[in-house]
């Protein structure tokens, strides 16, 4: 294989990782702050995709791009207030069971409303086409997708690291009791984090609807690799999750590129195993006292 092709595969693999990132960042945030293992996160991604389908005839793709994540985020706040909030102080295994059930309810609801057969949706005309970067011809839509994802990640990082909102969230991750003792109620922050994380999953649904098959079980498909990314990256570490997502995409892409496509999925799990063996908290996992 030529060096150019390998370079293409590496670049493409990194891009592929970015899709997982939109799901994984929300998962990581919700777990770090509330201790909720959100197995229903994939369902919100699926709802985002189906909303794009429903809203597009009225709002177009551009309109759905704005509206669908907002609707999903609001749904997230409702779920956080009514369900998640009851489990913040309990054993994570209980919230895991609850979100597992929630994922099934959501999937069946989509099946009842839209039917089991996959539904069609295409890239809008204005986002079609190819771009040429040197000898690398690439889909214009994916370049746009990368730009949007990068903006989301940068925005989220600024919000968490540079704003007063982020300071409280980060303090809440480390020591919720101390935050409470300082007279700050974490509740609105929990809701905001759920809205952000779940909204990001909805956004991923919008962005991937034009290029992936839209069917009720699509959430299940994305949740497993997203979890692998969170585990590899390390809980509570923003850049850990980012690095892990890129690494997972890279490993998968290169495995396909060098002709071991059949093992491309297995390679990701092997990667997770190795990381857990040598760094049980993940690549850049921080020590979170209450989870030790």
């Amino acid at each position: 294989m030529s060096a150019v092709l390998l370079a293409q595969q590496i670049l493409n693999g990194l891009l592929d990782g970015v899709y997982y990132l939109l799901i994984a960042l929300g998962l990581s945030l919700i777990f770090s702050l509330g201790g909720i293992v959100n197995l229903a996160h994939g369902a919100f991604y699926a709802i985002g995709a189906y909303l794009t389908l429903v809203l597009s005839p009225y709002l177009g793709f551009g309109g759905s791009f704005v509206a669908a994540p907002v609707v999903v985020a609001l749904l997230g706040v409702v779920i956080e207030r009514t369900l998640f909030s009851r489990f913040y102080r309990s054993d994570p295994i209980l919230s895991l069971l609850m979100t597992f059930g929630l994922a099934m309810v959501a999937e069946q609801a989509l099946r009842m409303i839209f039917g089991a057969p996959p539904l069609s949706y295409s890239i809008p005309q204005w986002l079609r086409g190819q771009v040429q970067l040197g000898s690398f011809i690439y889909s214009f839509y994916r370049v746009v997708l990368l730009g949007i994802a990068a903006a989301c990640i940068a925005g989220l990082w600024l919000l968490l690291q540079r704003s007063s909102f982020g300071r409280v969230v980060r303090a809440g991750v480390q020591n919720p009791d101390m935050v409470g003792a300082l007279g700050i109620s974490l509740q609105p922050y929990m809701s905001a984090v759920a809205a952000l994380g779940i909204g990001l999953a909805g956004l991923a649904g919008v962005l991937l609807a034009p290029i992936y098959s839209i069917h009720p079980a699509m959430g299940q498909e994305i949740i497993t690799p997203a979890f692998v990314v969170v585990v590899i990256g390390g809980l509570g570490s923003f850049w850990g999750v980012v690095a892990a997502a890129l690494l997972v995409g890279l490993v998968k892409g290169v495995m396909v590129g060098i002709g071991y496509s059949a093992a491309s999925t297995a390679a990701i799990y092997l990667l997770m195993l190795l990381v857990l063996l040598f760094r049980p908290r993940g690549l850049f996992g921080e020590r979170i006292t209450r989870f030790e």
Binding site: D16, I137, Y212, I222, V256, S261, A262, S264, T265
Partner: peptide
Amino acid sequence: DLVPTDAADFSAYLLKIRE
């Protein structure tokens, strides 16, 4: 190429096909 049944993204394969 053999494609794992849970693979959803074909971009890596499409680059190989183009080449």
